[in-house]
């Protein structure tokens, strides 16, 4: 299991390869979040962020049989088109990999202490939390 909160970009194919080596892995599901149309800065709570993500991964491991998992989330200034976050989950079969990957992203959206500040034409603005994100996390209960 790997959790990293970092400024630098990441290489999805390298991360997927790193969790695929085990002979028991038959499926890897991955997700990459990308900055859409505006430049932004991501702030986080150092220490708690890593801890919150690790707890989410632990919860996923309690629900599904996972062989391995990697979560990388970036912080600092990001340009449109840049990668923000990745989750890759390895398991024996695809069902668990797909479900765990989505679960981790849904929980990360509502429980990991990150805040986006966007640079819009009229000035900078903090992104408001979306009710849809809360609903997405709720459905796993």
């Amino acid at each position: 299991m790997k959790v990293s909160v970092q400024r630098e970009d990441f290489d999805l194919s390298r991360e997927v390869k790193a969790i695929s080596g085990n002979g028991k892995v038959g499926a890897v599901a991955s997700f990459v979040g990308i900055v859409r149309d505006v430049r932004m800065t991501l702030e986080h709570y150092p220490g708690m962020t890593e801890r919150a993500i690790a707890k989410i991964v632990e919860e996923a491991r309690g629900r599904w049989q996972l062989a391995d998992c990697t979560v990388i989330h970036r912080y600092g200034p990001l340009e449109p088109g840049e990668q923000i976050v990745m989750v890759a989950v390895a398991s024996a079969h695809r069902g668990e990999a797909f479900a765990a990957c989505e679960f981790i992203m849904d929980y990360l959206k509502t429980r990991a202490p990150f805040w986006k500040k966007e640079e819009r034409p009229g000035g900078t603005a903090w992104v408001e939390a979306r009710a849809a994100d809360d609903e997405a996390a709720e459905r796993w209960k």
């Binding site: 979040g33 991501l42 986080h44 709570y45 708690m48 989330h73 923000i84 976050v85 992203m105 990360l108 959206k109 509502t110 429980r111 990991a112 202490p113 990150f114 805040w115 986006k116 903090w126 992104v127 408001e128 939390a129 979306r130 994100d133």
Partner: peptide
């Protein structure tokens, strides 16, 4: 103890 707005990462 930390106080903050609802999170918006991911």
């Amino acid at each position: 103890i930390a106080f903050f707005p609802p999170v918006t990462g991911g």
